[in-house]
Write a protein that binds this DNA or RNA. Structure first.
Length: 134
RNA sequence: UGAGUGGGUUGGGCGGUCGCCUGUCACCUGUUUUUGUUUAUGAACAAGAUAAACAAAAACAGGUGACAGGAGGAAAGUCCGAGCAGGGUAGGGCACGGUGGUGGCUAACGGCCACCCGGAGUGAUCCGCGGGAAAGUGCCACAGAAAAAACACGGCCGAUGACUCUUUAAGAGAACAGGUAAAGUUGAAAUGGUGCGGUAAGAGCGCACCGCGUCUUUGGUGACAAAGAUGGCAUGGUAAACCCCACCGCCUGCAAGAUCAAGUAAGCUGGUAUAGCCUGCCCGGCUGUUUGCCAGCGGGUAGAUCGCGUGCGAUUCGUCGCAGAGCUUCUCUGGUAACAGAGGGUCUAGUUAAAUGAUCGCCACCUGUCACUUGUUUUAGCUUAUCUAACUACUGUAUAAGCUAAAACAAGUGACAGGUACAGAACUCGGCUUAGAGACCCACUCUUUCU
RNA sequence: CGGAGUGUAGCUCAGCUUGGCUAGAGCACUUGGUUUGGGACCAAGGGGUCGUGAGUUCGAAUCUCUCCACUCCGA
């Protein structure tokens, strides 16, 4: 039986690693999320979250980070091993939702993340096949 | 009944599934160390040595499971006060900063409690950086005669003295001496206010009331209050202007600091007795000669652990003892109260890209939409009655009642959708300030009605 | 987390020390003139809750306190 857990070693922790991931410039996005990825040598995917100050006060930012953690925990086995994922939110959509008085739901985040994962997997496999054929 | 004042409690609830952080315990795997046994090498035997295997214990790393605990009243702002840490320190004075009614509470405070005074309110109650303006300095724009300076200007009078005229003693004139502080368009503020008497004109010049000051007595620890006598009014405002008085205050802050690891580097420049240091200054003190001291530059800054969440000691691992400005919705005592003392209970999150969450079901509350019911108002239509000439009929921009339909508003019920205040511990406490949807409780005030 | 500082016209800044004089300067904007037209130039004008809310004072951009934004520094 597959356990969905999220340990400390599955997180990106250091400031230096965040900068390295951003320097790899592998970026995918949809209307809600933006993700930067970079290969690592751990053997499992790792999660990094970045929520800036303009998304609200500490309570709202903690809530957004928890939603991302929850989604990552439930969909980690669909992701590529040996990659670090750095997720960020799209500011404009959240601003619009805040004006309408709605809260962001975890199911919405999870669905958005699943679509991104499919996109990433196709792209990375394609590149690997190109290299192999060459 | 309506309106309101003050205070307190709580901060959506229950259940299922998955997940996060910390601690304790148990188990598994790996590594290292120690001990024991067996085997091998070696050896005549024993002891000892080396290697391997097994077992036990300890430490470290990884994993699994169980149990326990896991955000707030403001965790926020960082506005104060402390603990704690480092630096400094023989001592004194000045400077600088803070506080400011009185008495108390507290480890301390700019906090809290009680009282006094002033202001607001019918009242419960609320608000107040609330010492000193005869220690000195400054400022008071515009307007105004004048902004604190003398009645200087402008007025009034001219009783008294001198002058001129008429005239008999007396009267008139002018305004020279002189007297006076009543009027003078202002302004935030103008030499106590109002009234009567008084006078040549006036004036606390006299009196009555009010205000103010001084003294005495009484009450109170005190701020102050009350009563009486007395002075005749003298000192306009501003100290959140400088200042004076009283009291308090070393500087820097957990990114403090300690240990370990790594790393530069016996690096360079300047000063050095009329020197350097001792927080800003002074008195004063200390240092003691170029391999020294001080200042600056350069270099370096992936870090880790402790500090850090009760501590120390003992232990039969159940707990016990001592110490905490520790906590306490418990009890008693003292005190009006803040609070203090004694007893009982209790030790309560510990993260570091930062742990408390997500989702489902039911319930509670709020908002919106739709449907139904009830009530009110308006409009339209119909019926009846009245009125419209004395009667009847007709008619009607007439009135009233009823019914029907539509719209709006209010209340209730049901369904659906959305939401559930403010807000996240970052070394720890005591306060203050600010944010804030509600729910509940207590005490009190005013108004209306009834008894 | 701790410590410093700044908010004034659409923009960049003065004025705050020592409270009152008209809240000012440059660029920008509007109108008119000049030019065949535009730019430049000349003349006139509009535009300010002085970040917010209280207090002291007769009177606050200025003094005091509270709150809100923003900037910088610190191993």
């Amino acid at each position: 039986m597959i356990r969905y857990r999220l340990k400390k070693k599955q997180r990106v922790v250091s400031n230096r690693r965040f900068k390295e991931i951003l320097d790899c410039r592998m970026r995918f996005a949809n209307e809600l999320l933006t993700v930067f990825i970079a290969p690592n040598d751990c053997g499992w995917p790792r999660l990094g979250v970045s929520v800036g100050k303009r998304f609200g006060n500490a309570v709202e930012r903690n809530h957004l980070k928890r939603l991302l953690r929850e989604s990552f925990r439930l969909s980690q086995y669909d992701m590529l091993d040996n990659y670090d994922y750095l997720f960020m939110y799209n500011h404009n959509l959240l601003k619009k939702m805040k004006q309408d008085g709605r809260r962001l739901k975890a199911t919405v985040v999870k669905a958005s993340m699943a679509r991104l994962i499919v996109k990433i997997n196709k792209r990375v496999e394609g590149r690997a096949n190109e290299k192999a054929s060459k």
